[in-house]
Design a protein around this nucleic acid. Structure first.
Length: 404
DNA sequence: CCTCGCCCTTGAGC
DNA sequence: AGCTCAAGGGCGA
């Protein structure tokens, strides 16, 4: 095991309503946290390894830093002048508070969204404590370039491989290596694309290599950070298209390779701190049609115009932190969390079907039995609504159909 | 402006 | 065993 200086466990007083790490770290906004036996959620952050544990009493964390000299044992390190342990503890706490984005009052936001949106009010109680993290913008950018046509498990694997091969090793925990996220510079070079293809990145290999080159060589130093939101006290007025700074950041990101509207919005929201950013992916498009009357007339398919209209709608409905509310409903739509949503199976007997065969019309009375899987919020089962849902839901058409 | 085929890989479902 | 399809899209014609 690599020589690490391990801090004591410290406590951060925060309720599960304000932050639920088990949901927040798995809902597809960050891809590097690993849950280890006896260690909890673990990830590298700015040259150190952080572990998080949470129960009803609060959040616990500890840091693991690489030793400067491996010849000294832990006791010697602790007493060695030059290493200010107290200072490091404070630094870790600052880092963690910043990353977890603990400033906004999440309960108050949930209440506000619930008061203006019955659908949010119905679904949110099963998904409390989902907080938008303040991730590093560069990491978010690469992570979401990887996300196209992909699933969370595989995205996480790809990001892990990226760190393993291109990021500096920080240390081992439970005999697993932990690397920091690679810099843009380290992902430039003539062999990166082909190597990433060998590692299974597919067509995203070229996007990553090109975007890394643009950021490292063509843009000025600190360009990505310059797009981030520094408005600590946003005024309540929000233009339908979002604040000027958000629009500019979004537009700038579109010039990169492998970055379309959706990926740009993910980076704006999770890497640059623009709360009004609403990434519209297949899940969001699904519930926009199911619960918010999109998918008809002018906004039949998810074109760029429809994409903007969906975002504008949610911004007007939810306000300046619309992206936060969006993440709650997104999580509610993930199969990963289907254990949080009770599944009710409805049996419905179809109408008698008449089957034609050549010239003879056979009265084949085929009774079809359909099983509809309907997401039902536990303890809030409304029979009429449920049936309606089953018939209107896009899932109903793909529901299992068995002949008897 | 909208639509479509294509891009890589993996796992589930049939 | 083999096929289709979707998984948090983007790009070019």
């Amino acid at each position: 095991m690599t020589n690490l200086r391990i801090s004591e466990w410290r406590k951060l007083p925060i309720s599960l309503k304000e932050l639920c790490i088990d949901t927040t770290l798995r809902c597809g906004q960050s891809f590097r946290w690993r849950k280890l036996e006896n260690e909890g959620w673990t990830c590298t952050l700015h040259g150190q390894i952080l572990s998080l544990k949470q129960d009803e009493s609060g959040l616990q964390y500890r840091s693991m830093r690489p030793n400067i000299s491996s010849s000294l044992d832990q006791q010697a390190q602790l007493t060695k002048p030059g290493i200010d342990v107290q200072n490091e503890l404070e630094e870790t706490e600052r880092l963690l508070k910043h990353y977890l984005n603990l400033e906004p009052n999440l309960s108050a936001l949930y209440e506000q969204w619930s008061s203006v949106d019955p659908n949010f009010k119905k679904r949110a109680p099963r998904f409390t404590g989902i907080r938008i993290l303040k991730q590093d913008a560069w990491e978010a950018l690469i992570g979401f370039i990887c996300s196209s046509n992909n699933n969370i498990v595989r995205i996480s694997q790809m990001v892990h491989n990226l760190c393993l091969h291109y990021g500096p090793l920080i240390g081992h925990v439970n005999s697993q290596p932990f690397h920091d996220f690679p810099t843009p510079e380290s992902l430039t070079g003539p062999t990166v694309e082909s190597h990433l293809r060998e590692l299974g990145f597919g067509y995203r290999a070229r996007y990553i290599a090109r975007t890394a080159t643009i950021v490292a060589k063509e843009k000025p130093e600190g360009w990505l950070q310059s797009l981030c939101n520094n408005d600590d006290f946003p005024d309540q007025k929000l233009p339908p298209g979002g604040r000027e700074g958000y629009r500019r950041a979004h537009e700038e990101l579109l010039n990169l390779q492998g970055v379309g509207p959706k990926v740009a919005d993910c980076v704006c929201l999770m890497g640059l701190g623009w709360g009004e950013s609403v990434p519209v992916d297949t899940h969001v498009w699904q519930f926009a049609q199911r619960d918010y009357k999109f998918g008809k007339g002018k906004h039949r398919s998810l074109t760029k115009a429809t994409y903007d209209a969906v975002g504008d709608h949610f911004r007007q409905l939810w306000g300046i932190e619309a992206g936060w509310a969006h993440s709650v409903l997104f999580a509610a739509d993930l199969k990963t969390f289907s254990d949080k949503v009770a599944t009710k199976v409805e049996i419905k007997v179809d109408e008698i079907k008449v089957k034609e065969e050549g010239e003879t019309i056979l009265d084949l009375k085929t009774v079809l039995k359909r099983e509809y899987q309907v997401d039902v919020i536990k303890d809030e089962v409304d029979e009429e609504k449920t049936k309606e849902l089953a018939q209107d839901s896009p899932r109903a058409g793909r529901a299992k159909r068995r002949k008897l």
